[in-house]
């Protein structure tokens, strides 16, 4: 029921802009990025996935997304630092950033970063979708 209404909202977005909103995922675990990519595409988003910060920095220049979804622990850095960099860059400072974390000291993470939202792993896909739509609507 709830999911359906979200879908309606997504469809509304889809038809009103005629162009899918783009979500950029930085996640090194291929299983997680696979399912997120699949899920979000099903929900009508364009999705671009990077496994490392290096790849992300090389690839992101092509086209800016409408939202960043970052993992905290990455092989060549961490999502929190990346988030800070994005927020300090004029080009990306207004794009919402959501951080996915499985870390035990989650509360600490919450205090020290500038992200627009946090998603605790393991997450519920509907919850994640709610957060994403909320961020896109208020952005």
């Amino acid at each position: 029921m709830r999911l359906e209404s979200k879908v309606t909202i997504r469809l509304f977005y889809y038809y009103s802009f005629q162009k899918n909103e783009k979500i950029c995922i930085v996640e090194d675990n291929p299983d997680i990025s696979f399912i997120l990519d699949y899920f979000l595409r099903e929900e009508g988003f364009d999705v671009i996935v990077f496994a490392t910060i290096r790849e992300f920095k090389k690839g992101i220049l092509v086209e800016l997304p409408d939202l960043f979804l970052l993992d905290v622990m990455l092989p060549d850095g961490d999502g929190i630092t990346l988030c800070e960099q994005l927020k300090n860059d004029k080009a990306t400072s207004t794009i919402p950033v959501l951080i996915m974390s499985a870390h035990a000291s989650f509360d600490k993470v919450r205090q020290t970063t500038c992200a627009n939202g946090f998603i605790n792993k393991p997450f519920d896909l509907n919850d994640m979708l709610n957060m994403i739509t909320e961020q896109l609507r208020s952005a």
């Binding site: 997680i32 399912i35 699949y38 035990a104 792993k121 393991p122 997450f123």
Partner: peptide, 24 residues
């Protein structure tokens, strides 16, 4: 315990999301 639960969370995230998609 911290590391273990953290490590366990990643496959569970995948598992949970997969099951949810399967459910759909």
């Amino acid at each position: 315990l911290g590391i273990a639960s953290h490590e366990l969370k990643t496959p569970i995230t995948v598992l949970k999301a997969n099951l949810q998609m399967l459910n759909r």
